[in-house]
Design a binder for these strands. Structure first.
Lengths: 117, 117
DNA sequence: TCATTAGTCAACCATATGGGTGAATATCGC
DNA sequence: GCGATATTCACCCATATGGTTGACTAATGA
């Protein structure tokens, strides 16, 4: 499902370390796993696992050159979350509009009943 | 930290059931816990727990009237995630601009060296 | 060739998460 | 007052998550 994709993206983005990794990549361009790990007080392996999670969410891509893996940020998937939010907002506004309509027509009824009073 | 807030929001939004709850609330307006639970093939208790998670992330508010709890969607916190995304994008574009600048100046050097060739 | 370097894989641990059940707590309505 | 209703609380369970260490694989370079 498309829903599953969104869950993966949001879960990946829901971790502070992973967001920091994304920020680093965005501001410094592609980095090697070791290069990324240098910024964290954490084992290389842990960073490697975080990268894997980001990769599976499509938030990061990997170019392997020899034994070095260059990791690059991929912001495209974040647009899925923006679209989801956008949908929520539009449904919300739709409902509010319908509510206004309802109130307006009730106001109408009220006016009419006053006339007949 | 502000970062913690963002993590909570993203984690809360990272679950399909919870996103469905939000959608229901947005399109139908405030609902009781039982009313929400009716839409899911899941115990009332589980839904109650999901609501709690959403509440702690600020994505939902609760108005208690007697024994009934009315849950309402609160989209405001989702703007935090939009702001975060926005920041990432702007850093990204900043770096790209700097890269362009660099390439342009190198092109310059190249032209100059050709003249002296 | 062979030690070093880059990275992943596998196993382990503690804690968090998503689900369930049963009991406790309020509030309603008769 | 008292049974029924609406929720939460307190556990329990299986699995996921974030971290560790140690072994393994592959590429580098002296």
């Amino acid at each position: 499902m498309e829903d599953d994709v969104l869950s993966r993206i949001l879960k990946a983005a829901g971790d502070t370390t992973r967001r920091q990794i994304l920020t680093l990549l965005v501001q410094e361009g592609p980095l090697r796993v070791t290069g990324l790990a240098a910024h964290f007080d954490m084992s290389l392996n842990s960073v490697s696992k975080h990268i894997k999670v980001l990769e599976e969410a499509g938030l990061v891509t990997r170019r392997t050159l020899g034994r070095e893996h260059f990791i690059a940020a991929e912001l495209e998937p974040l647009k899925h979350t923006e679209r989801w939010f956008g949908q929520l907002k539009s449904i919300w506004e739709l409902r509010l509009a319908a509510l206004d309509q309802l109130l307006a027509s009730e106001e109408n009824d009220h006016d009419r009943s006053r006339k007949h009073q």
